[in-house]
């Protein structure tokens, strides 16, 4: 693996914050993606750019099982194929007008984007039952600094640093007493990350959300200690 390789699967959002028939933007290593759910609730991840004029599709809206561009209303089906051009309603849209799509999966309460359209689903983290959402935390720091901060910061109702277990390269588990916190790390760009947090059922979710809020302050203010 080279230094620049990105993980096969990157977390892009908590599953519970994207309702059916809605879309949002997401960055993965500087690449702009649109994450959207069709009316049946199935998640899709595409390049965030309309082939027509380059408008961001995440500004658009979902119509049935089509994602429509806000600019001129071009509509794309769930396979990314353009199906409707309002200015030319009679036109049989050429097969060449299509989105760049990526694989999308939901696992452990998180929407994951594949690095390619055929990303291997067996490389997703193993299923963990009984998790509840805490929050996503966006912070201006590197993933390395976030990992250091997570490992050093006690979880709520515990005085000691948590036990850290790496599940995949961008997914870790923190355990302290009765609390287990699963952290999926999304690298947005240079010194920009998101931590998508899920916890075991029964964990104090509000306290964990406050813990995350305080952690952001640490990650963004304290410079890394020189060794």
């Amino acid at each position: 693996m080279t230094m620049t390789s990105q993980p096969t699967w990157s977390p892009v959002a908590l599953s519970n914050v994207i309702d059916p028939s809605t879309s949002t933007g997401a960055l993965v290593d500087g690449a702009e993606l649109v994450v959207w759910r069709d009316s049946s609730g199935k998640a899709h991840v595409w390049e965030d750019r309309c082939p027509h004029r380059g408008m961001r599709m995440s500004f658009g809206f979902v119509r049935g099982d089509h994602l429509a561009c806000l600019y001129h209303g071009w509509q794309y089906d769930t396979a990314g194929q353009c199906r409707h051009i309002p200015a030319h309603p009679q036109l049989e849209v050429p097969q060449t007008i299509r989105m760049q799509t990526f694989a999308a999966a939901e696992r452990n309460g998180i929407i994951w984007a594949g690095a390619t359209a055929d990303a291997d689903p067996t490389l997703l983290p193993a299923e963990i039952a009984g998790l509840v959402p805490v929050r996503s935390l966006y912070a201006d720091c590197t993933a390395a600094k976030a990992l250091k901060g997570l490992a050093a910061t006690p979880l709520p109702i515990s005085a000691d640093a948590p036990t850290v277990e790496a599940i995949t390269e961008n997914y870790i588990s923190l355990t302290a007493g009765p609390i287990r916190l699963l952290v999926a790390i999304q690298a947005l760009g240079k010194e920009k990350i998101a931590l998508h947090l899920m916890a075991n059922e029964g964990a104090p979710v509000a306290a964990l959300a406050r813990y995350a809020q305080a952690l952001r302050l640490t990650l963004e203010t304290a410079p890394a200690e020189a060794a």
């Binding site: 908590l14 914050v17 309702d19 809605t22 949002t24 933007g25 960055l27 995440s58 996503s136 966006y138």
Partner: peptide, 14 residues
């Protein structure tokens, strides 16, 4: 300033 960093506000706006 985009909306992606503010998931709770996105839901509230909708």
């Amino acid at each position: 300033i985009d909306h992606e960093e503010f998931p709770a506000l996105r839901l509230w706006l909708r």
